[in-house]
Design a protein around this nucleic acid. Sequence first.
DNA 1: TGCCAGGCCGAAA
DNA 2: TTTCGGCATGGC
Length: 287
Amino acid sequence: MNITRKKDKNGYYYEIAGAAEFDPDKIFDCGQCFRFDKREDGVISGVYRDSLLDISKDGEGCCRIYGAEDLSREELVSFLALDLDYLKIRADILQRGRNTIIEDAAVTGSGIRILRQDRFEALISFIISQNNNIPRIKKIIATLCEKYGKKNISRDGRVYYSFPTPESLYNAGEEGIFALKTGFRAGYIYDAVKKILDGETDLCRIAALPTNEADAELCRIKGVGPKVSACVLLFGFEKYDTFPIDVWIKKVLSKYFPPDFSPESLGEYRGIAQQYLFYHGRYIGID
DNA sequence: TGCCAGGCCGAAA
DNA sequence: TTTCGGCATGGC
């Protein structure tokens, strides 16, 4: 795989060539992140930290990312998880989970990588996700950023917003957060923000903990239970040994797995297996 | 129009 | 310990 910084009439861009198991269409549309969308021209556009990224593919399997001038090569590699050997991970999952649905899901989900998203953003996003649907989750998060995030302007003049800081959400107050149609989740978001600001929840410290202890820490936040915690750990903390169970995964499990199935049997990368199953169940169907 | 959504809380049993 | 109603809102 080659990652090179280049320049054309539209400005600087990173070119990613020869990356196995890297399909931006699936990566940004598999339900792991909520701030990226595919435009009508086929470009995937979204905000990572303070950068507005425009991601496109040519016919040769080559990928271009514009708008990443402020990101180092290492930061981009980390965000896109290009430092992990997904061919090897997939093989490991398939070797452990000898099950036709896992084989099917691994084919459907081929090219998915688990992004390394900002921890605070992942936490708030998946609190919002509970008992909610993806289009509405995206809408609420977009409004949250517009209202309380930093305003930025891209080099070609587009306005976009960074994800709010804990401080800005604290200043918004529970009422301000509720006003964004977050519903019963407003109190949960506010509790998370308060715990982070008073030091009771330390995301940096949690990142260094083993998965089960990190999970226990996150679950001290009101509105964070096993499913939200697992998603936050998987998508924001590189904890691949989590297995979020939502309504879609429940359907897959009850239809294709024995009642005594243990996710741990899928190995240390079971979170990635889960994402294959989620994508397969949610977007392809399980019937 | 209802059912449902990347669930969790709190009370009841 | 497990079960279950309630929760805000809008996508479909």
